[in-house]
Amino acid sequence: MSSTPVVTTPTNRSAHFYESLSGWLFISPLLTGFCLFFVGPLVAIFVYSLTEWNILSQQSSFVGLENYRDILFENPEFWEVLRNSLVFAAGLVPLNVALALVLALALNRAFHGVIVFRTLFFAPVVTAGAAWAIVWTFLLQKESGGINQMLALVGIDGPNWLRQPDWAMVSVIVTRVLKNVGLNMILYLAALQTIPRDYAEAATLDGAGRWHIFRHLTWPMLAPTTLVISIVTVVGSLKVFDHIYLMTGGGPENATLVLAYYIYERAFEFFEVGYASALAVVLFFVTLGLTLAQWLMKKESN
């Protein structure tokens, strides 16, 4: 295919029109897909959330905001589940971001085997999530689990990780962090490598120590990356489902019952699609709120 560049001038209206038309035509396949498979369902969820709809018996009626009223004021379980989701996010996000940064800083140097280490930490990201979760349920057994057997070597009697409510939450958070930290590590590594070395050299000449360089040079220059990473990680942590489903099934004593799991249960075990949609909308706004909050905090600190 050969093409000649189209010369446009702002005054040439018809050329401008054709240019923008061809632009729209070029993006129309994506746009169609986006509207059909993303905007459509999104709008549909909002509409469903105003109904009481049992998908199995096909009975549906418009109930207005009744589902939301029930969720927010009548359903104590919702607050418990929301709290679990926030605890999960509050545990996972700082741990994930901090660990990713430490790993990236440690592996942003040239030494023998650096590729091996980078690969090692990235490998869980490309591992199947289900396999990861199931292997960990074996490792976290009380008596015959690998973790407790290692702890026993140093004289520690490990807990029953997945059967004690507090430890179960810790277990799902840590195993989830280990699964995904590699991705954030790579993002940080990429960002670190865009920082010109001259800056650090100049700072060193001025007598700055390594901590000062990190605190006043590297960390501020990583800020845009940190923002992206924390937003993506918060969103991901609120959507967590498969990991919980496979490792604890929401237990013990509902300690790891998070919003996404609760929505699944309402929709596909109770068949209450209207109610589940309303929960999904609430999750949407919680996620949106947290994302905006991060955005604004960043703006403030700039």
């Binding site: 049992n54 998908i55 199995l56 018996s57 096909q58 596909f268 699609v273």
Partner: peptide, 28 residues
């Protein structure tokens, strides 16, 4: 359930005991 909900049920199927009362009650 999604096939039934989408108006495209199979003609026949296996049914598990645990789900039976719900399906019977839902008149499908």
């Amino acid at each position: 359930t999604l096939q039934i909900g989408g108006g495209n049920p199979p003609d026949l199927g296996w049914m598990l005991e645990g789900a039976a009362p719900t399906f019977i009650e839902s008149n499908v």
